[in-house]
Nucleic acid binder design. Structure first.
Lengths: 209, 209
DNA sequence: AAGTTCGGCAAACAACTGTTTACTGAATGA
DNA sequence: TCATTCAGTAAACAGTTGTTTGCCGAACTT
């Protein structure tokens, strides 16, 4: 994809990028629902009318941001699931990856966390659908682990959802911690690790539903 | 409290109530950050200027709504913690209470879920502080249960936070399910129960950190 | 009964909003 | 080389916004 070579296409992509970046930047302390077309174009250095050459709506820009944000998340999840090793190392690794991901994609993560329950339905649904797909992916990976021998489809799914929800909560917590107290960040990582250990303990003793 | 008997005070309270209700109603499909003073007063049947007799800001109205919303949540949590009985019945009861609470306080719950990571700092902080207090309360209640014998303060706290986060996730899920598919609602309740069972299993086998 | 308090109102302010219009000029392709 | 495409522009549109002003009249106080 993205093999649009013409000079014109390239320039258009550049403007589109500028709009997305401007939006992402403004959404650092604002909701998508309260964002304005003029506001975005001003920040992007374009005229208001130019916006409509790229998106019909601000909601459409929001959906584009969702796709972007989740692409990087997808990469992150896979990098955790691909790991092998004991439960302990896996937990440590997972928490580390989340922490780093939040640090390196602060704007994207904040956007997801803010708009997951935000005021724009289209965006909310896009995020939820994608999180559901993550849960499915996690569930499939869990099924391959020896610990899951004999688990029903339903139990695997509920465990996967528990992990995904926990990941989301932890990421949100990191988000707030990182731009405040650096010590609080360590505390959050430690708590997340303990919680994952407790879940993993419950998993080992699960007898099926 | 609220023993302000004068006719004047009563009328003022009535207007204030109208503003809060109007805000809550409008926030059903909108963010606090995108709410307007005129919008609220129009919905409440007052003139725009009247707003400033009650709140300096829309953020202030938001904080007032946080207090309201969390008061009812507080009652709910206590009603779960006060229960006695085996782990299984406790879990069933907790999920039922959450489900009913969301049904009966839809607007409040949606407001909390939406503004927890929303664009208004004051409100965000108010919600987070209160959720922290909930976790402390849950932790104190957990400490009294026999299963927690020998648990460190830190482990109790991390378990309490896990429960609170899980409650928040479940409530959000109910919120979306209830205004869509009624069958999906049953599925969410079932999943939440399984997850709580798994956590409770991990808890029983916990050896300390 | 007279004076004070104060919640609510209409009106005005400048500033901003989303969207459409007709246009320009560079990249494109024949 | 010449016609076409099309991303971007400035200008205009009618609405809306937050907030302040001076005023009214009912509820309070003495």
């Amino acid at each position: 994809m993205s093999h649009t070579v013409g000079v014109r296409q390239a320039q258009k992509q550049q403007s589109r990028r500028a709009l997305l970046d401007a939006g992402l930047h403004l959404l650092a302390d604002q909701n998508l629902a309260s964002l304005g077309v003029r506001e975005v174009t001003r920040e992007a250095g374009l005229s208001p009318a130019a916006f409509y050459r790229h998106f019909p709506d601000l909601a459409a820009l929001g959906v584009a941001l969702v796709e972007e944000s989740l692409a990087s998340l997808h990469v992150m999840i896979r990098s955790v699931l691909a790991e092998a090793g004991g439960a302990e190392e896996l937990i440590d690794r997972a928490v580390d990856v989340i922490e780093r991901h939040v640090r390196e994609h602060r704007a994207h993560v904040r956007f997801l966390s803010r708009e997951r329950h935000g005021g724009v339905r289209q965006v909310r649904e896009a995020i939820d659908a994608e999180l559901g797909r993550f849960a499915a992916e996690v569930g499939a990976a869990l099924a391959l682990q020896p610990v899951s021998r004999g688990w029903s489809e339903r139990d695997l799914r509920m465990l996967a959802e528990l992990y995904v929800d926990h990941m989301v909560s932890t990421a949100s917590a990191f988000l707030e911690a990182q731009e405040a107290d650096p010590a609080r960040e360590r505390r959050i990582a430690a708590t997340a690790r303990l919680q994952l250990r407790l879940i993993s303990l419950g998993r080992r003793h699960w007898q099926g539903s």
